[in-house]
Each structure stands twice: as structure tokens, then as C-alpha cells.
């Protein structure tokens, strides 16, 4: 029974878990480790699977906790110098000038997002990149629904101000 739940509800969200871990850690190997550790943790607590209402949110919560532990343990520092932004997916464009300009915009936006407090950053990523609902975000972060809305509003406000301040415009 638990194996069936595991295969039908947990394994399909592996990519989402990895993506979430990757965004928190900004490192492929660590993200992979955290994803695998999360799956193992979930499997080891298989007796809880039947009681849980939102399996995906539970898995995401485990990813976040493990990733934050890893960050704390290894004293990671999120790169403020935007070096990692160069690893963003390449934009398929023929004109090298436009490609370079778009990469520059991406780096600057990445810098703004990376500079947000962890809670704001996570909420924005969960909502705007992964497309989670407010309730799902509240379940993942174990906070109130109203807190999700408030923090998201504040986070977007900060991002907008920074975009205007740094004059970051799409190409």
C-alpha cells in the first residue's frame, strides 16, 4: 500500500523537489543529495503516508528543512556577485548582442531575487516559478495563509522597487 502511494504521489514530484532544492542551494550535487535524502526520509516514514493530506507539501517541507540544514552546516553563502547567474539556461537567440543583453538582465534579476530574505525568496519562487497556490505554500512553509499573502505582496513590492532602482528592463 505505502509503496503504491510512494510510487504514485512522491516519485512523480521528484523533479519539483530537485528544482526547489537547487534553487535553495544553487548546487547540482547538493540538490541531488537533498532530493535523495528527502525521498529516503519519506520512504522511512511510510506509515505516515496514509495520514497525510498533502503529500507534495510534506515532501517540499522536508526538502526545505534539509536544504536549510545543509546551508547552515556548510556555511554556504548565496553569491551576491551574480556569478551563478551565468549558469542560467542559455537563451536561444541568434543575435549575440541580444543574447548578451538578455543574460545581463537575467543576472540582474537573479541578483535582486537572491538578495531577498529567505522567506520572501522562497515564497516568490514557490508561487511565481512553481505555480503553487497560497494554501500549498502555507502547507509547505507551515505558516498561515494570511502570512503567505502578506509576505508575497511585500516580496513583490521589494522586487519591483529594486527593478526600478537598478533600471532593469526586459529586452
Amino acid at each position: 500500500m505505502s509503496l503504491a502511494i510512494f510510487l504514485s504521489q512522491v516519485v512523480p514530484v521528484r523533479q519539483k523537489l530537485y528544482r526547489f532544492a537547487y534553487r535553495l542551494l544553487e548546487n547540482e550535487e547538493d540538490a541531488m543529495d537533498v532530493t535523495q535524502d528527502t525521498l529516503m526520509k519519506v520512504w522511512q516514514q511510510q506509515e505516515r503516508m496514509t495520514d497525510l493530506q498533502n503529500m507534495e507539501a510534506w515532501c517540499m517541507r522536508i526538502v526545505r528543512n534539509l536544504a536549510l540544514d545543509k546551508l547552515k552546516a556548510r556555511k554556504y553563502r548565496r553569491s551576491e556577485d551574480l556569478d551563478t547567474a551565468s549558469e542560467l539556461p542559455a537563451i536561444q537567440q541568434e543575435n549575440p548582442h541580444i543574447v548578451a543583453e538578455k543574460q545581463d538582465v537575467m543576472k540582474r534579476v537573479h541578483g535582486i531575487i537572491a538578495g531577498l530574505p529567505e522567506k520572501y525568496r522562497t515564497i516568490i519562487q514557490l508561487r511565481d516559478i512553481d505555480g503553487y497556490s497560497y494554501q500549498e505554500i502555507a502547507d509547505i512553509l507551515v505558516i498561515e495563509l494570511s502570512e503567505v499573502k502578506t509576505n508575497l505582496h511585500r516580496a513583490r513590492k521589494v522586487v519591483r522597487e529594486q527593478l526600478q532602482k537598478l533600471q532593469v528592463y526586459g529586452v
Binding site: 520512504w43 538582465v105 537575467m106 534579476v109 527593478l163
Partner: peptide, 29 residues
Amino acid sequence: LKEAQALFGYFAAEADIPMPVFPEIGTLT
């Protein structure tokens, strides 16, 4: 609308992170 364009362009690029090859589930269980 250009500042929103920059932001949404970034979101689209971030959603497109290349996926690694995951190990077999059998080895995990």
C-alpha cells in the same frame, strides 16, 4: 511593462533548470 517582462523572463528561465538522471527507485526503497 518592461520591468515585468524582465521578471517573467527570469521566472521562465528558472523553471527550465536541466534535470539530472535520478537513480532507480528500487535502489532507494
